[in-house]
Simulated assay, not measured.
Amino acid sequence: MLYRRKTYKINRETLEEAVRREIKEETGLNVKLYGITGIYHNTTMNIVNIVFRGEAEDGEFSFQKDEVLEGKFVLLTKDNIEQFITYPQLKNRVLDAMNPQYLPYESFRLKPYELLERYEGKKEQ
């Protein structure tokens, strides 16, 4: 990532590529992404989180034991979410992803224009 003129730029990597790479690095899993379910801005720390919904395709689940105390898959529902997620800002993100209304998103290059990838905005049935 480069910092230029008060903006950040991901070097030659689309947002989807960056998300897939980070998930692979953090969990060992390759994922299929369906779309963006929310954008969340923490004004206290000036952090923007972009949340994608997807599913694991392959790989072996692992995590860095010096950074994570426990890692496992659980089926989250509206009824049990508070057993696993205690921070309200994280709970909202997961609830939004459970009932997704995908936002449109695209990555492109200029000079000449080239569309690299696009997600359509839609509500999942």
Rank of each mutant, 00 (worst) to 15 (best):
V19R: 08
V19K: 07
R20Q: 12
R20Y: 00
R20E: 15
R20G: 09
R20V: 13
R21M: 03
R21I: 01
R21Q: 11
E22P: 05
E22A: 13
E22T: 15
E22F: 12
I23L: 11
I23K: 05
I23V: 15
K24A: 15
E25T: 09
E25L: 15
E25N: 13
E26S: 13
E26I: 07
E26T: 12
T27C: 06
T27K: 01
G28M: 03
G28S: 07
L29N: 03
L29D: 07
N30S: 15
N30R: 14
N30C: 08
N30P: 01
V31F: 03
V31H: 08
V31I: 12
K32Y: 11
K32P: 00
K32C: 01
K32D: 05
L33P: 01
L33R: 02
L33E: 01
L33Y: 03
L33V: 04
Y34W: 04
Y34E: 12
Y34P: 06
Y34F: 11
Y34S: 11
G35H: 00
G35E: 07
G35V: 03
I36G: 02
I36Y: 00
T37Y: 10
G38N: 06
G38M: 08
G38T: 13
G38C: 10
I39H: 03
I39F: 05
I39D: 02
I39G: 06
Y40G: 06
Y40E: 02
H41L: 10
H41K: 10
N42P: 02
T43D: 14
T43W: 09
T43R: 14
T44M: 11
T44R: 13
T44G: 12
M45E: 15
M45L: 12
N46F: 06
N46C: 01
N46H: 12
I47M: 03
I47R: 12
I47L: 09
V48Y: 12
V48H: 08
V48A: 10
V48G: 06
N49H: 09
N49K: 10
N49C: 07
N49Y: 15
N49Q: 10
N49M: 08
V51M: 00
V51I: 14
F52Q: 00
F52Y: 07
F52T: 08
